[in-house]
Design a protein around this nucleic acid. Sequence first.
DNA 1: GATAATCTTTAGGTTGACATAAAGATATCA
DNA 2: TGATATCTTTATGTCAACCTAAAGATTATC
Lengths: 225, 225
Amino acid sequence: MNESQEMYLVHIARESEISNKPIPLRSLADHLNILPASVNQMIRKMEADGNVVYQPYKGVSLTKEGERQALRIIRNRRLWEVFLTDHLKFNYHQANNIACEFEHVTPDEVTDRLAAFLKHPQTTAMGKSIPGPEGEETVNLGSPLNLATAGEQVQVKNIQSAGTQRGFLIQSGIAPGKTIKVLAMKADGVCLLHPQDAPLVQLDSQLTHQIRVIPIKENEQTPQD
Amino acid sequence: MNESQEMYLVHIARESEISNKPIPLRSLADHLNILPASVNQMIRKMEADGNVVYQPYKGVSLTKEGERQALRIIRNRRLWEVFLTDHLKFNYHQANNIACEFEHVTPDEVTDRLAAFLKHPQTTAMGKSIPGPEGEETVNLGSPLNLATAGEQVQVKNIQSAGTQRGFLIQSGIAPGKTIKVLAMKADGVCLLHPQDAPLVQLDSQLTHQIRVIPIKENEQTPQD
DNA sequence: GATAATCTTTAGGTTGACATAAAGATATCA
DNA sequence: TGATATCTTTATGTCAACCTAAAGATTATC
């Protein structure tokens, strides 16, 4: 496995975190700044290696082994992000870019010791989950808010934005732990929300996608912790 | 500049630290596990880029610019070595191997912040000098013991070996700060020494090359610090 | 100072990741 | 359903770093 293929794997894994459907090659091409024709070739190789399955004209998804590999790399990337933000004082965006490079040259042994040095964090500064050494999810991050349906009540688990966006959301009563009622949800993700202790708010789909929630039952009380 | 060329530069710089003469292409080929024919090609490119000068059949040396680049990379490598040994508890040899990979993907900004995080160390665990941000030497490491002449008295500045070798030398009275009289020195580096407070000792050239010393005047007292 | 042994260079070949352009498949919409 | 727009694939080309093999220099030895 080489650096290129690792980037393909990670992108597929990250997209799969959200959509759960096969990822179209176009998505890979756009993200990696490569032409679809080149992606096609590479995907054939990766399929031959047993890391992905490809349904022509549909998209790619990870095999068990491919997912294992991807989680290993994502774990490494996110641990570096924690180091870079917490100890070297980079902002989240910079940390992410730098970690993208490191992940391809970091042996597993370094990843594990880095995890220990960082006291085994479970999420990055942006609230992204850090898988364990065997790829297991260590926290339940919930699902993107855009998948919720009108009438549903949800609890915010994570806000995967930084800076101004994050600040705005938290001021608007959309913060980790808070309960929100979904009043309306359009198919594209634009929605109308009623936060627990704050006025109604409309969100664009861009924001909606970055909020992770778990559904709660209507008659359940919000835990006071 | 890419990863390959960086490896070439670093090797030339490290060899130049010792010999000061143009480095034969064979030395690069051996060290990088590449055939001389390939090294030749690459050196032509690097010469075109202005990083080295090559005298055919003689060897390569660094230009001012090439040296600046090389020191930048070496600084980065050695800072990572410090992080890996001091914080992630790798031994020196492992740290060196890992740092070799990191050095090619670390932006200068990361290097500088890493230096700050590590409290601006001046040498690695093996006593190798860490250049400053502009490539300047921050400590006087002295010169290899094999360059000393019989009759000379020298002070040990650094021992660039690890583990058993280092332990043996220190037990034998050859430790940083100690004064040693050079009783005999063969052209190949094999020598006979009289450490300050210990019995005579013979050293093979391999060891002699890894001991860095500065000459002291006969009538000067060893400083007591 | 000639000849052998060794090192260096040149010329052409391989591989991996990408690009371009044209051919093939699918989706959209009247 | 048919025409068109869009996406996907195939075939071929480029580039960088390396290799192999053979030709060309240099150094060592007698």
